[in-house]
Design a protein around this nucleic acid. Sequence first.
DNA 1: TGTGCCTGCCC
DNA 2: ATTCTGC
DNA 3: GCAGAATGGGCAGGCACA
Length: 575
Amino acid sequence: MEFARLAEAFEKLEAKTSRLEMTADLAELLNGAPESQIGKIIYLLQGVIAPPHRGIELGVAEKLCIDALATVTGQTERAIEASYRKTGDLGGTARLLLEERKQRSLGASQLSVAKVHDNFYRIATASGQGSQTAKTRLLAELLSNASPIEAKAITRFVTGRLRLGVGEATIIDSLSYAKAGDKSLSKELERAFNLSSDLGLVAETLYREGMHAIRAFKPTPFNPIRPALAERLPSAAEIIGKLGTCLAEGKYDGLRLQVHKSGDRVEIYSRRQEKITHMFPDVVAAARRQIKAKDAIFEGEAISYDEETGRFQAFQETIKRKRKHGIGAKQKEIPLYLFAFDLMYADGKDYTTVAFAERRAALKALVSGKGLIELSKAVAVKTPAELDAFFEECVNAGLEGVMAKDLKAPYVAGSRKFAWIKLKKSYAEGLADTLDVVVVGYYYGKGKRTEFGLGGLLTAVRAEQRFKTIAKIGTGFSEAQLQELRDYLTKLKVPKKPDNVDSLLEPHAWVKPELVVEVKADELTQSEMHTAAKTGGRGLALRFPRLMRIRYDKSAKEATTEKEARGLYESQKTH
DNA sequence: TGTGCCTGCCC
DNA sequence: ATTCTGC
DNA sequence: GCAGAATGGGCAGGCACA
C-alpha cells in the first residue's frame, strides 16, 4: 500500500473529534489494505515498530529528527527549532518546510507503507560507532522522498506524537467495525490483545484466520499480558462505598514485574511489557526455587530494602536495578523483595477469568518457602475504619498507600470497572505536601498547549532574597488557567534570568519572581537538576508536581522557603 | 578517557 | 506518574 | 466513565566529541 494513503488517513483522523467517525474511517482504511500490510499499518497507527516486548526502539526523537530535517531542507537547525516553537508540532514544521520546496528532490520515489516501516526498523537496529549518522541518514532518505503530508506523518511518528486521537481502544473497535460493521467483536478482540500485548498480531490473525483464531488466544508463558490498572479515590469511605468488602493490599513504591515461568526458563516483563529479565537474576533464581508449578504467570512489586534496618528504600534506589551492566554488584548492593499480588496462569489453568479471591488463594499455594518472593501484605476489610487503619499501618511501614481490590472481579486489563482502587496519602485533602512556590519562568508548550502559549511553569522556593528552583509544573491547569497564566506572566516577562534566581534549567521565558502558585506533590526527592536546598551537589525536587491554584493573594515573600522544603524532606518516612 | 547530550522507560 | 477535556 | 493528550522527576545506556 502507498504510504500516501496512510498519511492522508492520518490527516482525516486528526481533524475529527468523534470517535465513532474515526472508527468508521479506520475500518475503511483497514479494509482497503492488503492483508499482508495489516500488521504494519496497526503498528504505525500505534506509533510503534513492533510490540514492546520485542525491544525495538528507534533511538531517534526530536533532536535527531531536527538534524534530519535540516539535511533534507537545507535549513539550519536553529530555523527549524524556531518554526517548531511556533507550530508546537515538529510534524507541522516538516510539512511547511517541504511545501516551500517546489517539488520533490530529483529522483524521489513513491513511498510505500512497507518501505517506511522497513526504514524505521533499520533506524531502530542501527548501533555502534557512526550509528547516529546512519540513523539520521535513513530518516533523511524517507523525508526526502516524502510529500509534505507524508513528512508530517513520519516526523510525528518519530517524535512519538501522532496526535490522531486514536488509541488502542479505537483501533480495536475499528477492527470490529471492519469485519462485522459494529462493535460486536470488540470484547473478544480486546481480550486477544490483553493476552498477547500485540495489536498487530491480533489484527493479522483476524484478517488471515478469522474470529475462531482470535477466540483461541490464551495466557501463554512468554507472551506478556497487559496489566490491570487501578482507579483512584480520595477516601476509604468512597472505596468501601464502591467495592463493599474487599481485599486491601499494601502499595509498594517499586517496580511492577510480570514473571513468566515454564520449567527452568523464566522471563520478566515490565508494566509496559518490556522484557527486563536481565536486570533481575535474583528474581529469576527465586522463581525457579519458590514457584511450585511448571508453568506460571504472576505479578508482583519489586522493592529494595536496607539490609541493616530492614526498611524499604525509596523508589530512587530501587530504580537503580534497572540496568544492563554490573548487575552482579548491584544485586548485592540493592537487595530486593518481590511482593507477589496476582496470578494469571498456572499449569494450564487460565486464572484471568476467575475471581480475585480464588486467584489470591491459588497464588498463596503457588509461592513456597522463605525467600525473595513473598505475598504482598493484605487484609480483608469491611468498613472505612478498617481500611483507614490498614492504610495508616502501611504508610507507617514506609509504603505508598494501599490498593483495594474487588474479591469477585476477574483480572481485567485497563483501568475500567473499578476492580482495583488505589489510595495514596496525596489523594486525601490536607494530607499531601502542598507548597506555595514562585513562578520564575515558563515554557511555551506543544500540541494543544501551543494555542495558549504555555506548556508549563518553572517554579522556585525562597531562600532569603534568592529563589531556587524546585519543580516544573506541567499538569493541573484547566484551559482557562493556561490562558489566564499566560496573560499574567507575559506582563512579568524579563529578557534574561533575574540575578536572584538560581537555576540550572533554561525556560523559554524568564519572569520576575512575583507570582505564587500552590502546588501539590506526593513527596520530595533529591535532585541534580533543581537548586532548592542544595547541599553536596544535590538539591530537592517535587515528585509528581501538579498545580492546585493560583495565589494572586500571596506575595513572593510569603512563599514556601527552602528551609521549609528541607523540613518536609526530612520528615518523610523513606529517604 | 571523561563528559555532556539525547533517548527510552520507570514511576 | 497526574490532570483535564470531548464524547 | 472512557480514551486520549498534555505534562512532571530521575535513572541508565549509548554515542559523539573534546
